[in-house]
Design a protein around this nucleic acid. Sequence first.
DNA 1: CAAATATTGAGCCGATTGGCTAAATGTCGT
DNA 2: ACGACATTTAGCCAATCGGCTCAATATTTG
Lengths: 108, 108
Amino acid sequence: MRRRDPKGRLEALQAVVAALAHPARRQILLTVHLRGGSMTAGGIAGRFAHAWPTTTRHMRVLEAAGLLSHERVGRTRVYRIDHSRLDHLKEWLSWFDDAPKRRAKRRR
Amino acid sequence: MRRRDPKGRLEALQAVVAALAHPARRQILLTVHLRGGSMTAGGIAGRFAHAWPTTTRHMRVLEAAGLLSHERVGRTRVYRIDHSRLDHLKEWLSWFDDAPKRRAKRRR
DNA sequence: CAAATATTGAGCCGATTGGCTAAATGTCGT
DNA sequence: ACGACATTTAGCCAATCGGCTCAATATTTG
């Protein structure tokens, strides 16, 4: 029930939501996912209007957030999606699922 | 099944995720929610370390994203949460729920 | 009406973001 | 070893962000 390391979880949530805040990064993630979960850097960059280094940087942000990882294969780098980190966000969102559950704190 | 206005939906998603990208704004939203769904501006601002106008600005961002709305009551303003917009984000996240569903597009 | 209260608006300012181009790095084929 | 290819690193620069302080605007109360 991963309830360990609340500080780390907060940071992870922050990294994830910040990474998703940019449309290009959301699209990168979705593109890789829909194409089977992994793509080369060039395959990704080729699909975007941005200059290649710009897209590379977005990938670095996604990787720093733990949403993407990469592996070198010959002279290409293959990026693989890891959507387990998205659970942090889903978990946060689930606070809003039911009617507000007032906590054990006297109302003022 | 709200499938209308794809452009508007994209913009809404962007506004929502950008609004949630800041920890103070996430906390404002959660605070209002947990306290029953509505609070005065002062009630909110009083709980944060930031200067009051700073928090006010965060509230404006949340309101622009459709996550908060307000109503004037006497000399106070009561903010009310509207978490229906969070569904845009949940919907986007749901792309990643199952194994990648390759679309009707020949693989290369 | 004047003073107190509740809240926002205006505007400054340093830090971060996200685009770009040019150069560096690493690998493959000849 | 050399040249072509795949990708990243470095660094510039304009725009946005998010803090702040100091007004400005309602609204209630005396």
